[in-house]
């Protein structure tokens, strides 16, 4: 679902000054009242929480803030999070490229059904996402319990389970960013390249990819942010064993409920920076796209 939204959010061209056309403009007091309500709502629900994270992280001093990152469990959780992202993002990158290529470059029956299936992970509660993999891979209750036990393979309460749940949750993101960009690009340039004798891979690498590189880049960054931040699905499959299967979001929860709130907020501030950087990149790419349109 988020993908539908990010696709829809093209950069708004600045609205023309409305004061000159009083007939289709609201009175100034209504305008400012609405601006105050809208901005006030966002300040209360978005800006203050963001500020609060950094305030809470630093309020006991910079030394304590940095001490958080010397805790061996915190370091393990950070490594775990990086590993999970390093597994799930490339997998979804390959999938996203294939899905976007199939959906935008060809006409076939059942396309809208395929897109609906692609969106399913947006509609499923993260907790249920975790549960699905437990039902399949648990060594006590899963479908594959016997073969997994015999082969001594641990998937649930271990890294593979965390990676699986994360892949599921982040599955649509890259495809969803690429599809509208590739759709807007059309097929003409590919036709031209192929007519001029380029092979399929060459066309893909030298024509298609350069055209969609920014959309692809943002898709990867967004997918990465979601992979590093996933909580519900990972909580269900990981067992949250400190120092073994704890990721950053899980360790934040552990710290918080162990009353180490400064440390919890310190780790949270790192993930918040990642989120802010993701938003900044999104806006940078949209600004570039808007400028390119303006020039053209």
């Amino acid at each position: 679902m988020a993908g539908i939204i990010t696709r829809a959010s093209s950069p708004p061209p600045p609205a023309p000054a409305t004061s000159a056309r009083a007939a289709t403009a609201e009175p100034a007091w209504i305008r400012w009242l609405l601006i105050t309500i809208g901005v006030g709502f966002l300040v209360f629900f978005l800006l203050l929480p963001l500020v609060a994270i950094f305030h809470e992280a630093f309020k006991r001093g910079v030394a304590l803030y940095f001490a958080t990152f010397q805790d061996q469990y915190a370091l393990h959780a950070i490594r775990m999070t990086l590993t999970v992202a390093a597994i799930s993002v490339p997998l979804n990158l390959l999938f996203g490229l294939a899905a976007a290529w199939a959906i935008t470059k060809f006409t076939f029956r059942g396309k809208s059904l395929l897109v609906t299936v692609l969106d399913l992970p947006f509609a499923v509660s993260p907790v249920i996402a975790g549960l699905m993999f437990v039902l399949i891979f648990s060594t006590t209750h899963g479908w594959l319990a016997d073969p997994l036990r015999n082969a001594d393979i641990q998937i649930i309460f271990a890294l593979p389970g965390i990676a699986l749940a994360t892949v599921f949750i982040t599955l649509p993101f890259i495809a969803r960013e690429l599809i509208p960009v590739m759709q807007a690009q059309g097929r003409d340039e590919e036709y031209a390249a192929l007519t001029l004798g380029a092979g399929g891979w060459r066309t893909f690498l030298t024509v298609t990819l350069p055209n969609v590189k920014w959309g692809l880049f943002y898709g990867v960054v967004l997918c990465n942010a979601r992979a590093m931040g996933e909580f519900g699905a990972v909580a269900v499959v990981s067992g949250n064993i400190k120092g073994r299967t704890s990721t950053m979001p899980l360790y934040i929860e552990t710290l918080y409920f162990e009353y180490q709130s400064a440390a919890a907020f310190a780790l949270a501030s790192v993930l918040s920076l990642l989120a802010v950087a993701t938003l900044a990149l999104k806006n940078f790419i949209e600004w570039r796209a808007a400028r390119a349109r303006f020039k053209a």
Partner: peptide, 21 residues
């Protein structure tokens, strides 16, 4: 730009921040 924050911010971090607030 701020409007998209809930898409990018991990839910656990959001929960933590809102609770503190």
């Amino acid at each position: 730009a701020l409007v998209d924050l809930p898409f990018a911010l991990p839910t656990a971090v959001a929960g933590l921040a809102l609770t503190a607030l």
